[in-house]
Computed example of a mutant assay.
Amino acid sequence: MVLTVIIACEIGFWIAVLGGLAARYLLHARRLSVVLLLAAPLLDVVLLVATAVDLRSGATASLEHGLAALYLGFSVAYGHRLVHWADVRFAHRFAGGPAPVKPTGAAYTRACWADVGRTLLAVSIAGVVLLGLIAWVDVPERSEALRAEFPLLALILGLELLWAVSCTVWPRRPAGVAAGA
């Protein structure tokens, strides 16, 4: 059940975002746009409640329950950035806004390090949610799968950090610039 709720929340997130942007740029309905865009974070609450209820009703924690915690952390940490990403592209396509800029060089390196901060926030939130779910279940045998998620959180943060270091050492060059130039 939890996996279905995760998938539904992800689909709902993009429906809310795209619907909000369509309302803003195509229908020029600013209030409707705000309502739809504010609906996206409410889906995180739905997912958290569904996960907690499932576990409290006696379900043994599984990979899906841990995935729900990861989804919540990344949705909170990266949700605003995803909405902004979509907004820039939607504004360009439908409202004559400027074309999206692909950062290179120092700007890209700064963006990579900002992502390290976002990922740290995401894994921290996911870790707190996991700890909360473990306490909520309060039966070690039923919450072992949740404890098993912590190494994955460390791996995700480590990979993000490794990416930022590599972008610092080898910054992204603008298109058409040779590596030796």
Rank of each mutant, 00 (worst) to 15 (best):
H28R: 12
I6W: 02
G79D: 02
L82R: 07
V169S: 10
C112F: 08
S57E: 13
C112T: 03
A135V: 07
L3M: 03
I125Q: 04
L121I: 04
R56D: 14
H84P: 09
R56W: 15
P140A: 05
F74H: 03
G117M: 03
A69R: 00
L37G: 06
A181D: 15
L21A: 09
A114W: 06
A181P: 12
G127A: 08
A59N: 14
L38I: 10
A77S: 02
D54R: 12
G176T: 11
V129F: 01
L121M: 04
L153F: 02
R30H: 15
L48S: 05
T60D: 12
R31P: 08
I125C: 07
G12P: 07
L146H: 00
R142S: 00
C9N: 07
A126R: 01
V35L: 11
E144R: 03
I15P: 05
A91W: 13
W136F: 04
L32E: 07
A114V: 05
A91R: 11
H80Q: 03
G158V: 10
P98F: 06
W170K: 13
T119P: 01
V101L: 01
G12Y: 09
A148G: 05
A50G: 12
H84I: 08
I11G: 09
W170V: 15
I156L: 05
L32Y: 11
A29M: 14
S62R: 14
C112G: 06
L55S: 10
R56T: 13
L72C: 03
L146G: 00
L3N: 00
A68R: 01
A40W: 05
K102N: 06
V88D: 06
A164I: 09
D87E: 14
L82F: 04
A29S: 13
D54W: 14
A164D: 02
A122D: 00
G12W: 11
Y71A: 00
S166Q: 10
S166T: 10
A99M: 03
S143R: 00
A107C: 04
A29R: 09
L18H: 15
R93I: 10
L32C: 10
G66Q: 03
D54H: 15
L130V: 12
A16I: 14
I7D: 03
V165W: 05
G176R: 14
G97Q: 02
L159F: 09
E64I: 15
A23I: 14
R30I: 13
F150H: 00
V49T: 09
G105A: 01
V49E: 10
T168R: 07
V177L: 13
V177M: 12
T109A: 04
G66E: 04
F74D: 00
E10W: 09
A59E: 10
F150N: 00
G158N: 05
H84M: 11
W170T: 14
L18P: 14
T4M: 03
P100K: 11
P171C: 08
G176W: 15
F90E: 06
G79A: 04
P41E: 05
L120K: 01
V46W: 07
L146W: 00
G12E: 06
A16L: 15
R172L: 12
R172Y: 13
V76Y: 01
V49F: 10
L42G: 12
A40V: 06
A22Q: 11
P174D: 13
G97T: 04
L43R: 05
W14D: 12
